[in-house]
Design a protein around this nucleic acid. Structure first.
Lengths: 334, 334
DNA sequence: GCGATGTGAC
DNA sequence: GTCACATCGC
């Protein structure tokens, strides 16, 4: 028996709006500690992890661990039927193949219940270790979203470069280039507008803007976003979910590959090639960096996820992550 | 000679916005008592009746009864050219084949007149008797609109079930089921938020959400809507037009047909079939329930409306309306 | 014609 | 920041 009562139903609506474009189907894992989800996006490039801790719920009952396979689009449809100030209750019987969402208006005059069939979804639960990062940027989430959106009108990838002074987002495309620099700014009086950089050493990594723009669908959840970067790790883009947990998006950096130079030249006719700057990048399926992520032994994977179609990633277990730091000249942030 | 002057021009704009999606062409009937319209929707399933009483106009002159055939889309286009606070005057000569809309800005600085050609439209004017209903629900119009919209993301039809305690709106579709219960709530201090149920006996009827969603286009006209239900009558969804009259939408309930059970089973694999619950429903063209509606002898029908394409409705004169009450188990509203 | 997105007003 | 309205795309 599962019964989770959440007073701020609007939160759950926003969580689903930020997940549904990235992931079609996923298992929600319910345990005594909370309500969580981990899933790869449909193209197996990005990974999302959601945690809503049990303490954040008004009422939280979870007699035994349950994995509820849901179609996130359908779940989002149902949650859309809740008003933002409705109280939302999620119910499931241990044996049942369906889940019930109950929406109560604040004055109790309207009570709605929506029942949705559950799905059997193959998934692999990875234990993601808390990694050490070379740089962690915290900044206003709306600003980050705006930057990603703006840059994607120019190019397909963003180079995120962090120095002590600030963070630079750069792109280039057929029509030109763009660089947006955000200075560090503690903004004591308005902490939600602060831009804070914690840095061990400068780092510069390249990512597909397409995914970044999916991640920023979570912007309504939090005023601030943190972007954690290390040369050979996926970036972590994290939005806190008010007092309850977080939604974290992981995306492997694009890898520099010299052997595809000619393809590069085609797509960026006006590229200025600098020595030591390898230009062609390939999106790395996140499965390939699995060796970096240890299996979390306290959860039991139901089955193994399908391998992505790309053959070149299939033997990633023994293939080292490229040295992104060496491949890209660290750009100065003025 | 016809000359109707309406100070709240915005009302007429809203009336047309709520009619034009349902009905393409219709006759406006002008008599000494008021300005009215009655028309079936293009698929002959729903019926709409509008009344604007002469007393609601600042000036009302109608020398003899006139029937003005208009294309409602074109009329709506012209009325869109009026500001909401413009004074609108409708003029027509008895012999003319056109109508003039005049818009005056409140300070008289702007005067516009738009002339529109009239059409010759075959229509049948039905005298709709004031029926006795088993249940009349009055509720906030925006809430009803929201419910119909939400349910239509899940299913195609809505079952409206009324008990003393409240009204329940239910649907089911491929992705699951939904039930929304609105409790009775007199809301003395905010009458526009009240939900009032007058009930002779519990009633439960099924309707096509598509039409309901067309009806709710009239939501901007009134804070409240009344939904009048009886087992073997079309539902009446009524919006009052401020101090002037009403716009009423009629929709025949869907009929339970046992013979299509197997089609039902296909589309709802997980349906729990209860005894006495007939599952397959068919939309009943509103022509078929003509026997329930007497011809109004004080208006002269110009001609007879075309029969709907469906053969099974063509001989509806002698076909009894199904006993919906017996076919559907009355559901408890807790 | 309906749904989704973006913009403007409260 | 939220809600409603209008416009554009499917």
């Amino acid at each position: 028996m599962l019964e989770l009562r959440l007073v701020q139903g609007g939160l759950l609506k926003k969580v689903l709006e930020s997940l549904k474009d990235l992931v079609n189907d996923a298992n929600f894992d319910c345990s005594a500690s909370g309500f969580s989800l981990q899933a790869m996006d449909s193209s197996h490039v990005a990974l999302v992890a959601l945690l809503l801790r049990s303490e954040g719920f008004e009422h939280y009952r979870c007699d035994r661990n349950l994995s509820l396979g849901m179609n996130l689009n359908n779940m989002a449809k149902m949650l859309k039927c809740a008003a933002n100030d409705d109280i939302v209750t999620i119910k499931a019987d241990d044996a049942s193949d369906s889940v019930t969402f109950m929406f109560e208006s604040p004055n109790q005059d309207k009570i709605a219940d929506f029942e949705m069939k559950l799905m059997d979804i193959d998934s692999e639960h990875l234990g993601i270790p808390e990694a050490e990062f070379q740089a962690i940027v915290r900044m206003p989430s709306a600003e980050f979203a705006r930057i990603c959106k703006d840059l994607s009108t120019i190019g397909d990838t963003v180079v995120i470069s962090v120095t002590k002074e600030g963070v630079k987002f750069s792109t280039r495309g057929d029509i030109g280039t763009a660089n947006i620099v955000c200075r560090q700014n503690p903004s004591i009086d308005k902490p939600e507008e602060a831009t804070i950089i914690e840095m061990e050493e400068p780092v510069s990594l390249t990512f597909a803007l397409r995914y970044m723009n999916s991640f920023t669908k979570a912007t309504p959840l939090a005023n601030q976003v943190t972007i954690s970067l290390s040369a050979d790790l996926p970036v972590v883009v994290e939005y806190r979910v008010a007092e309850m947990g977080y939604i974290r998006f992981y995306l492997a950096p694009k890898i520099e590959e010299e052997e595809h130079m000619e393809a590069q030249m085609e797509s960026r006719p006006q590229a200025e090639i600098k020595p030591k700057t390898k230009l062609k990048t390939e999106t790395q399926p996140i499965d390939d960096i699995k060796p970096k992520i240890e299996h979390n032994t306290d959860t039991k994977p139901k089955s193994v996820v399908k391998k992505p179609k790309e053959e070149n990633g299939a033997n990633g277990e023994s293939k080292p992550q490229v040295d992104t730091k060496a491949a890209i000249e660290v750009m100065d942030v003025e």
